[in-house]
């Protein structure tokens, strides 16, 4: 089953809607609780990242019987050094965003920790694609 969401970068209050919807669907499929928790955390982090750094983008989901694949695509500034960004505590978030409780540098490491497969493709000035897979 394929789903597509547009994430508006201007509406911070609406951030989390795509991940919320995905979560709701997985619960209707009766996916195991610990898997739902993993997906919730990974997709929410990725969605918030996209809003904070890249003014939103798109989320494409493919739910199969054995796994879920999620691709988050944006046309933001890109990540110059992915290895550095993957490090816990590393953050480029503004003070404003940090005041909201985000930008602690746990985003990408958290996504990694809560997914079975993670691929980040990024080009500076072009955008970033985060692909997540979690086994169901």
């Amino acid at each position: 089953m394929k789903l597509h969401y547009e994430v508006d970068g201007e509406e911070f209050a609406a951030a989390g809607q795509a991940s919320g919807n995905i979560k709701k669907m997985l619960k209707q499929l009766g996916i195991a609780s610990d898997v739902i928790r993993k997906i919730s955390i990974a997709v929410y982090e990725a969605e918030i990242n996209m809003v904070i750094h890249a003014d939103g983008g798109t989320v494409d989901v493919d739910i199969q019987t054995d796994k879920i694949y999620i691709a988050l695509k944006d046309t933001g500034p890109g990540i110059p050094n992915i290895d550095l960004a993957m490090r816990e505590g590393y953050s480029t978030a503004s003070d404003e965003v940090r005041d909201l409780g985000f930008g602690a540098g746990m985003g990408l490491p958290n996504i990694q920790k809560n997914s079975d497969f993670l691929k980040i493709t990024s080009a500076v000035g072009v955008g970033t694609t985060v692909e997540i897979e979690v086994n169901l």
Binding site: G16, S19, G20, K23, I36, R37, S40, I41, Y44, E45, G101, N110, N114
Partner: peptide
Amino acid sequence: LEELENGQ
């Protein structure tokens, strides 16, 4: 609870 579930 949604926030808690999202690890926030």
